[in-house]
């Protein structure tokens, strides 16, 4: 079972007058098969937190431990843009992040491509696919390494509403089937409520302001009263924190 423990996490960029505090004294624990969304306005440190969690950036102070059954957990990452190698085919893009190219690895990659409805596009180059399809490949790539924790940074923000909705359903389905932990960054409260069982609200300046549990059954339809009420509740929290105004 995966666990994330963040203690007194602090991150600054620049020095002197140019110093910007991206994250301020963040303490957090996430365990098990959870879908946690991190929401907040632009500049609240959402992406910085994700970059620290995945090792792209190092914290100024504090500690981050990501473990799975006592071992260092293997992370998967889905980015805002798909970030595929344009000179490699879809299958090779998945194989690029694998430790080996054995038959069983290839079969696993193919299985995840099929899960995102792209089973027949393995020999295509990313340039031949639509934006939605490329993002699907990005999701399949992250799942294909069978990570203990999956980090997603606003993965649907570049897509049209219909494609994004379809992909949200696919993502939920995959999360449910694989029992992975997902840490999902978004600025879309509706998206967070539809997908998550826990929402962390960050304020400008990088402080964790609220930790909201969403105990509604899946799959959630945004048109459902209960989902709408939950969304209104999170938005009210936003207002309380004066986040909307900022």
């Amino acid at each position: 079972m995966a666990e994330i423990r963040i203690k007194n996490l602090h991150k600054e960029f620049g020095t002197g007058q140019d110093k910007v505090v991206a994250l301020e004294n963040v303490n957090l624990e996430i365990t098990g098969h959870s879908f946690v969304s991190i929401v907040g306005p632009s500049g609240c440190g959402k992406s910085t937190l994700l970059n620290i969690l995945t090792g792209i950036e190092t914290p100024t102070n504090g500690t981050v431990d990501i473990t799975s059954d006592g071992h260092v957990a293997a992370p998967g990452y889905v980015f805002q843009a798909a970030r595929l190698l344009p000179w490699r085919t879809v299958t090779d893009n998945l194989l690029f992040v694998q430790e080996d190219r054995s038959d069983s690895t290839k079969q696993r990659c193919q299985r995840y491509l099929e899960m995102v409805q792209l089973g027949d596009k393995g020999d295509k180059f990313p340039g031949e696919l639509s934006g939605g399809m490329q993002q699907r490949v990005g999701i399949a790539r992250a799942f294909s390494i069978e990570p203990d924790v999956l980090f997603m940074d606003e993965p649907f923000s570049h897509l049209d509403a219909i494609t994004a909705r379809a992909l949200r359903r696919e993502l939920h389905h995959m999360w449910d089937e694989t029992k992975k932990m997902v840490v999902f960054v978004t600025h879309d409260v509706g998206e967070a409520v539809e997908l998550s069982n826990r929402i962390l609200v960050f304020a400008k300046g990088g402080s964790l302001e609220d930790d909201i549990q969403i105990d509604l059954p899946f799959p959630r339809d945004p048109a459902d009263d209960e989902v709408a009420v939950a969304k209104a509740h999170v938005l009210r929290k936003f207002e309380e924190l004066d986040l909307l105004a900022s």
Partner: peptide
């Protein structure tokens, strides 16, 4: 952005150079 992606998936330097930098 591709090099960061590879790092986040813990792809080694040799493989990163061969599959990202050279192409």
């Amino acid at each position: 952005e591709l090099i960061d992606m590879a790092k986040s998936f813990q792809v080694g330097t040799f493989k990163r150079n061969r599959q990202i930098v050279i192409p």
